[in-house]
Design a protein around this nucleic acid. Sequence first.
DNA 1: CTGAAAGCGCTAACAA
DNA 2: TTGTTAGCGCTTTCAG
Lengths: 325, 325
Amino acid sequence: MSTISDVAARAGVSTATVSRALNGKANVDPELAARVRQAATELGYQPNGPARNLRRQEAAVVALIISDVENPFFTAIARGVEDVAHEVGYSVVLCNSDENADKENRYIDIAIQERVAGVILSPSGPAAGVAKLAARGTAYVAVDRPLPDRDSDVVLVDTRLAAAQATAHLVAQGYERIGCITGPAGVRTADDRLAGYRDTVKTTKNLVRRSEYKAAGAHRAAASLLSQPNPPDALLVANNAMAVGVLRALQELNLRPGRDVGVVAFDDAPWAELLDPPLTVVAQPAYEIGTEAARLLLARIADNTRPPTVTTLGARLIERASSHR
Amino acid sequence: MSTISDVAARAGVSTATVSRALNGKANVDPELAARVRQAATELGYQPNGPARNLRRQEAAVVALIISDVENPFFTAIARGVEDVAHEVGYSVVLCNSDENADKENRYIDIAIQERVAGVILSPSGPAAGVAKLAARGTAYVAVDRPLPDRDSDVVLVDTRLAAAQATAHLVAQGYERIGCITGPAGVRTADDRLAGYRDTVKTTKNLVRRSEYKAAGAHRAAASLLSQPNPPDALLVANNAMAVGVLRALQELNLRPGRDVGVVAFDDAPWAELLDPPLTVVAQPAYEIGTEAARLLLARIADNTRPPTVTTLGARLIERASSHR
DNA sequence: CTGAAAGCGCTAACAA
DNA sequence: TTGTTAGCGCTTTCAG
């Protein structure tokens, strides 16, 4: 593995000149620069990242810590982040925290140790790790959920409003006992979606269930809700994975979405239209969350003293037949 | 940001001792070690990764370069890799090459520059970048597709056999003009799936289409196939995203899967069962591909002289109604 | 068992 | 414009 001094020797210049030439710094004689580049190519020179990062005290890398790699909502965010970061020469590393505070903290530690320039994360709860980022002055921004007890840049979706509108849509369609299946208490998006639902239907009845943001939990929740003496005739479901569980429960009970039980779920998916009946969804602007978060992070890397901002994006109800009688 | 010398000073020992204590090396007085750990905690010491990696000439990180973060097949692989790597103290960084040779090469360069211990990748073609890994002696293993012109450890699925079996299943169900929609020529999985199809149905008719491994391309392909004078009565579809496009085309033409056109697609998905009729699929053992690849990579990191191995896993046909008349 | 010190490869003062 | 040189923070001989 050749080093900068090999290149310098071959080009007949000093290592400083090689460094300057290869990093496109001004004030290098074009002819020397050419010689340096040639020597570098001939040797197959690859700069030593750790050495560079050690010297610069920072790596041109941003870490993106998301709570579920298998959730298309988060992977779409990842694309948004990547596209913006790459434009300005940053690499993105994706870390999967799996909704698990330990893993999240572990990845935050790694990010700190590797001296990444910044971190974007979807916090899985009141994360102790984030305090470390703040303490070290590492730039970070939260997406999808705000950080409790901490103000930072954050990019959110107005999910409470979206939930309220989705519920209103079900009301408008003539459903009368609307239930809600949402995520765990304490997870902000789960609480907000429930709050939006309650903004629209004031009900004291037992029409709400919570579970993990997963299909299995939602399946149980739906089964329990629908087997009650006085079951709901419509359901607001708080994410995509949960929708799968709910729809499966409906199938098992021989209930047809739309006709028997109106269904609206958060997050659009390519297959939502393929269902019979097609699934009504609240589409969140995931890609834009990513691009916006990346832009904020870059701005904060450049200047960590700027006041924290809250960016709220809107969601869009896409009406399909699962919410029509 | 405190350094190892801060810790050393506070514990009243040398930096060498701190290093030894914190890295769990033998031969450190337990009492000193305790003092060191305490000092480290009090200072919130986080080792400087770049410095450590520079010195060690290697980072305890493996890079996973996949061709599509939004494809559940690859994210399942990612989980497999993570689970194995974490067990032995390696971190995993996920890079999304987007089926794009430039991005892939770029990520390979980054992996080399950052001196990662190894690379797992799903090659998007004859990648020049891989030669650099080999030249540098960085361990790597290919998943899903072998590397042309290069023998390395590789973890594959016997996708040709699986395609042949899936096609045979369609034949057994009484379909008589079976078509195939597969990925781009030159992509090994696409070619293999087509070959498996041809192993079963010897046809000279115009029943094959290729497109990107995406919904849009498959949609066009299906539309073109089905609007022929003598259209197919069944379709083998080479991946999950494509299945979405094909099913959409069927919907538009008012053709019902199973009854009108038999459909089998590669890759299972949680929503496959929700469709009406449910989708018959060839389920690939994605998670196991990941765990196996990680194990091979670890072995190769330990000993790069071992002969390359080819691991082939089987796929499983899951029969559902879309392939029943 | 512990400490002193060299040096990994690079960049950025500082000099020339 | 170019070169010389001093570290960045860590691990690891080598002495003690």
